[in-house]
Design a binder for these strands. Structure first.
Lengths: 333, 333
DNA sequence: ACTCGGCTTGTTAACGGTAACATGTTATCC
DNA sequence: GGATAACATGTTACCGTTAACAAGCCGAGT
């Protein structure tokens, strides 16, 4: 294995100083066109590969944006990630991704790890963090964006929507079409915080509208999947007839519930309404189509990218961008 | 903004040399227990954050494993990613992720970019790469793993399965249950290479078994989604009756097709069989359950992690690990 | 008491770039 | 023609950490 080719080698081959090579490769306007092209050619010929690590070290700018997501295995978060990656690509920033598995302690560990890489900004999902996470971040003083939520006490910038408001709209829609006996199907207490917010909102809105008390059905630990939704309905069995609407924490759960209802011969929406959350493909394609809430996951990503651009170009005041979440009526309600 | 806290500061506060701090923080056994704990305490007190960039630079080991996936927005690849991340977490390696959007040129650009970060290993999806990508990688001489395929001429290690064999099994299964007029629903030519392999295998196997010539139905550019599957069936309309089986490139497409069939009142599997690929949740939960092929996406990830461990502990010969893909009969065939 | 070896700590230089400043070189103007 | 500006390139030092080697200290063995 031959030693790696550095700028020094390229410089020597061209007959200039390493500094000139550095400038030529970075499109610094002070190098002559002639020199630049010679440097480029020689660099390619020698198989020179730029060392971003060295650059990051010297300039103290890593070129990284650290991002934490609860899970990549979720079409919504994956959409956000994609929107963010694609929109940020042009700026030369690279994403350093970590998954928290819906756990704040894992998030803390992750943030700790990510910070050692000197990211130039930090993007977190949600507005809930351990105290240690919060102080770590504050001490570091780097730009932070919280997304997917509208935290009451944000760490910095925010790009999100109100899970509570979105759910309230959904419950109001159900009430308007005559549903009164709601059950909320979601993850067990604790883990999924946005899910918990949705649950609380369903309970509160139902109360406000004078509906029956909402039954809370535990579909298992977060992240709850299609299988969990199906299993929850299966476990309910005949007791299902007590309800006239299942409000599910996400479209995946709703789809699982819907499929199981079909197997059990329950008429949706005749006997039972089912709603989801997230506007996943499965909700739009399934038969019947599932009533859901479009949270514009991809847009959240691109908006985060826009905030980052603003921040990197030297912005000051924390931005708070609210992304519209809108009801998407389907055939299950 | 106060200047960042470095090892020098910690050293000064403790009254030792930076070297001792370095050793203490890295669990070098040559520091005394007393010194180590003092260093730890002071570091925490001062809010010292280890600088991995500097370490990576000095040691010429980045601690990164570069990974390219066609898309994160695909439950299979997301599973692989998750399996890999979780299995690799203990080794202290961090994943640097990039998405190719199913395009080899994008892969090349990505590899080029990732290499500037000095990854210690490179994990690529599939065995197809541009010539430039291949030579870039070979020149660098770092460990490579190709996954999700069994390339005839691998760059290094391999963890995958034969898309062709898996599809052949599926077609054989259809033939055995009397289906003879197959249509393959997949992405347009060119983009999705594993999809193309599957298509070729369906065509070849049908021929070998003496079935009718397979119709190839273009559902759109990769990645093909549920919506694409539904739209393709909708476009076919009455012409659908020509076939007795739709072999779809993935479960998402199959689910879209299935849903549209239901809307159109087509009896599945009575009039038409539908098969998918990938063993996504949606295939297992939908009613009817979709016949599919389980490719063990998560296992691919964990196996890749195992290969990496082997490589980092100084292995030599290229490993080729074949992951079993198995038929999962459902209710749609 | 003296030597030797093991344990713990310190010193030096370097990893590959680039900011800041210095210097050389060529046009431009009166 | 000489001064001045505009452009092109070079020099120096440093970013934070650690490998390699040097050195101090202490107890055991003779």
């Amino acid at each position: 294995m031959t030693a790696r080719v550095t700028m020094r080698d390229v410089a020597q081959a061209v007959g200039v100083s390493p500094m000139t090579v550095s400038r030529a490769l970075r499109d610094d306007k002070t190098v002559s066109e002639k020199t630049r092209s010679r440097v480029r050619a020689v660099a390619a010929e020698l198989g020179y590969v730029y060392d971003t690590t060295a650059q990051a070290f010297r300039t103290q700018k890593s070129g990284f944006v650290a991002v934490t997501l609860p899970s990549v295995n979720n079409a919504n978060f994956a959409d956000t990630f994609r929107g963010l990656s694609e929109a940020i690509a042009g700026s030369g920033m690279q994403i350093l991704l970590g998954a928290t598995n819906y756990r704040l302690e894992k998030e803390e560990e992750l943030v700790r790890q990510l910070l050692t890489r000197n990211p130039e900004a930090l993007v977190l999902t949600g507005g809930n963090h351990t105290d240690a996470t919060r102080s770590l971040i504050k001490a570091r003083g780097l730009p932070v964006i919280e997304m997917w939520d509208l935290p009451p006490d944000p760490l910095g910038h925010v790009v999100g929507f109100s899970n509570a408001d979105a759910m309230a709209t959904l419950v109001t829609h159900l009430a308007a079409s005559g549903r009164r006996r709601l059950a909320f199907v979601g993850a067990s207490e604790g883990a999924d915080l946005r899910g918990a917010e949705r649950r609380a909102s369903v309970v509160a809105t139902a109360q406000k509208l004078g509906l029956d008390d909402v039954a809370v059905i535990d579909a298992g630990p977060a992240p709850v999947s299609m299988r969990h939704g199906a299993a929850a309905v299966e476990r309910l069995g005949a007791r299902l007839s007590v309800f006239d609407a299942l409000v599910c924490v996400s479209d995946t759960v709703a789809f699982g519930a819907l499929s199981e209802c079909r197997r059990m011969g329950i008429d949706v929406p005749g006997q039972l309404a089912i709603t989801g959350f997230g506007h996943f493909d499965v909700a739009a394609v399934s038969d019947p189509r599932i009533t859901t809430v479009d949270v514009n996951a991809r847009l959240i990503g691109t908006e985060v990218a826009r905030v980052l651009e603003t921040v990197f170009s030297g912005a000051s005041a924390p931005l708070e961008i609210e992304v519209a979440a809108r009801l998407v009526p389907g055939e299950t309600s």
